[in-house]
Nucleic acid binder design. Structure first.
Lengths: 133, 133
DNA sequence: ACAGTAATGAGATTCGTTATCAATAATACA
DNA sequence: TGTATTATTGATAACGAATCTCATTACTGT
């Protein structure tokens, strides 16, 4: 049976108080910095669990590490992510869902999944990068 | 200056004679199996180069490793990938391009990139998985 | 042919993640 | 409330993908 531990709750909270996607490693050091003696393996396990339960989204960063972010559970959505500061906006895209479905069945594919994420520079980071040039 | 070596050519050829996405590791062992004494590091370097030059597409597998595939250079496209056998179909999606653009600018994001891939079971694998059930 | 130097490759190294396993602590039940 | 059960934890080892090192090799222009 599943048990409630302060460790899981700590991970859930830390994840929730974050604007964008975070790696397990950085979440772990954040927790350690706030005095929590939580172990690294536990953070990995908690994040994997949250992702399975639908309380967190995960994606692969371009460097190959897994990033996590709290999300509103239950509803399918995609992300608009600032590649500079990590700020993330959840976006819905019914049109894209339908497109994925139809493209798959057009080619005889079944059980379609899809990975749809948009990366860019958020307004703030855009302003910082080119202040007056 | 850039030089032509049989190693680069071997990687290009091996990649081209493959239906779907392959990892650097498996491409390396394939080459080794055919008698080529090419080194692993070289395969990694050649694949990275091909990806930069636009002769290969790359994506992150769900397990976090980078997969590569030969592609028609120059044109932007996405992929429909069989998650069982790796068969890949290149798909164009102007509608999705435009959607990504507009969604980004709606939220003040600039320089939008996007990751759009559809995974599924190809017709053949669908038939194999559930033969008559 | 030859010099200059990009490319190679075996092995060491880095880094993210998972497995191990004894110790701990959350839950069910008497 | 006390106790037995067993899921969970965490320090560390192990693993695997990818990169780096650096001496050696071999393209290329002259």
């Amino acid at each position: 049976m599943k048990r409630n531990t302060w460790q899981r709750e700590a991970v859930r909270t830390a994840l929730g108080s974050n604007e964008g996607f975070v790696s397990a490693q950085s979440l772990h050091s954040t927790l350690r910095d706030t005095g929590s003696p939580i172990g690294l393996a536990t953070v990995y396990r908690a994040l994997a669990d949250l992702a399975v339960e639908g309380e967190a989204d995960s994606l692969q960063s371009l460097e190959g590490e897994s990033l996590y972010r709290a999300c509103t559970p239950g509803q399918h959505h995609h992300h608009l992510i600032c590649r500079n500061c990590g700020l993330t906006v959840e976006i819905e895209a019914d049109a894209v869902e339908l497109w994925a479905q139809s493209v798959a069945s057009e080619h005889g594919f079944t059980q379609p999944n899809h990975v749809v994420d948009v990366f860019g520079l958020c307004a703030e980071c855009t302003a910082q990068v080119r202040p007056g040039r």
